[in-house]
C-alpha cells in the first residue's frame, strides 16, 4: 500500500447466495486506492458493488477473498482501532426513532467516550441544533441525512466514507456537505464519496475510481480520467453562424447552434474546421474544444445500462 493511501483494496471478492441457490458476484476482484488528503469519488452503476465494497471495508460484510487496508492497517482485523478515526455513512443509516437527534448522537458519543460538548458542536455544524430535541422519527429525509452526516463527523475523522450523502438534501444542505468535505480535506482528512450524482462528483472530487460489475474500470484524478477522451466537439464563434453551419454540414461535420456559438461535432482535428470555413471566406472569432464530462466518460467506461439483478436483500445489497 502506498504511504499516501488512506484506503486500498486488492483482489476484493464477494458473492451472495440467491434465493434459488447459486451465487451472484457483487464484487469481483476489485482493486482500488484512495489517496490521502483528497475527496475521492467512487462511481459505478446500480449493483456495481459500491455499497458492498464499503460494507466490506467497514466490517459489515465478510469478503470471500482479497485484502483491504484502511489508514495503513489491515481491515477488518484492525477495525476497532481504525474506526476511531473513521466516520461512515453507508446507504441511509438508521437511528433510534424514539430518541431525539441529540440523544442519538450522545449514545454514539458515549460508545466512543466523546464529551457531550462534541455533540453540540456537530449539531451546530450540520444545522440541527434547533431540532435537536425532537424525536428522530419526526425528522424529514434531509434532516435524517444531516444527522447521519453529523454522526459521521462526531469522531473528527481522518477518513470520511459517505455513501450517497446528498440523498434528500436541499440545495443548502448539499452546499453545506460540499463545504464540509472541502474543509475536511483542507484540514488533512480524506473523503471517500460514493455518489450517483456525477456532476456533484465532478465538482467536488479531486480523484475518482469507477467500477462496473464489481470490477475496477478506471481511476485517477478527475482530469486524468477525462484526459485523452476528447469529445470530438468544438464550439466556434463566427460572424455568420447559419452560413457556417451550412458550410460545415456540407463538409461532413455535425453542426448546430448553441446559444451565440456553433457546436461542431465529429471533429478529429480542429484545424480542419478552421480550414473549411476560411476556404469559404469565414474566419473564426473563437474556437474552444469541448472537454468530455464525467458523465460521458462514465457511460463509456461502464457500458450500456443493462438491467442487472439486484442481490437478495437478506444476503446483501449491491
Amino acid at each position: 500500500m502506498g504511504s499516501d493511501a488512506v484506503l486500498e483494496v486488492t483482489g476484493l471478492r464477494k458473492a451472495f447466495r440467491g434465493i434459488r441457490g447459486g451465487r451472484r458476484v457483487a464484487v469481483d476482484g476489485l482493486d482500488m486506492t484512495v489517496p490521502a488528503g483528497v475527496v475521492h469519488g467512487f462511481l459505478g452503476p446500480n449493483g456495481s458493488g459500491k455499497t458492498t465494497t464499503l460494507r466490506i471495508v467497514l466490517g459489515l460484510v465478510r469478503a470471500d477473498a482479497g485484502a483491504a487496508r484502511m489508514l495503513g492497517r489491515p481491515v477488518p482485523a484492525a477495525l476497532p482501532a481504525v474506526l476511531r478515526q473513521v466516520g461512515a455513512i453507508v446507504e441511509q443509516p438508521q437511528f433510534f426513532p424514539a430518541f431525539s437527534g441529540r440523544r442519538n448522537l450522545r449514545s454514539l458519543a458515549g460508545i466512543a467516550g466523546l464529551p457531550p460538548g462534541r455533540v453540540e458542536e456537530v449539531l451546530e455544524l450540520v444545522g440541527l441544533r434547533d431540532r435537536a430535541k425532537d424525536r428522530y422519527k419526526t425528522y424529514s429525509l434531509g434532516m435524517k441525512q444531516r444527522l447521519a452526516i453529523g454522526a459521521a463527523l462526531l469522531r473528527s475523522p481522518r477518513l470520511l466514507i459517505l455513501d450517497e450523502p446528498m440523498n434528500g438534501l436541499d440545495p443548502a444542505g448539499i452546499h453545506e456537505v460540499r463545504e464540509t468535505m472541502r474543509r475536511l480535506t483542507r484540514e488533512g482528512a480524506s473523503v471517500l464519496l460514493s455518489s450517483h450524482i456525477l456532476a456533484e462528483v465532478e465538482q467536488v472530487c479531486d480523484s475518482v475510481s469507477i467500477i462496473s460489475r464489481g470490477r475496477h474500470v478506471r481511476s485517477g484524478s478527475v482530469s486524468e480520467v477525462l484526459a485523452g477522451r476528447p469529445s470530438g466537439e468544438v464550439l466556434i464563434r463566427i460572424a455568420a453562424p447559419e452560413e457556417g453551419i451550412q458550410i460545415l454540414t456540407e463538409a461532413g461535420f455535425g453542426a448546430r447552434r448553441d446559444g451565440t456559438q456553433v457546436r461542431v461535432s465529429g471533429v478529429t482535428d480542429p484545424a480542419l474546421v478552421t480550414e473549411r470555413l476560411a476556404q469559404r471566406g469565414h474566419y473564426l472569432a473563437e474556437l474552444t474544444p469541448v472537454r468530455a464530462d464525467l458523465e460521458s466518460v462514465f457511460l463509456e467506461l461502464t457500458g450500456p445500462t443493462e438491467a442487472r439483478p439486484e442481490p437478495e436483500r437478506k444476503e446483501g445489497t449491491q
Binding site: 459489515l60 474506526l83 443509516p93 438508521q94 437511528f95 426513532p97 460508545i111 454522526a151
Partner: peptide, 14 residues
C-alpha cells in the same frame, strides 16, 4: 427491524 445495527457496528465493530 429498524436497521440500526449496521450503523452501531460502524462504531463498535467487535
Amino acid at each position: 427491524s429498524a436497521g440500526t445495527l449496521a450503523h452501531l457496528l460502524t462504531w463498535e465493530p467487535r
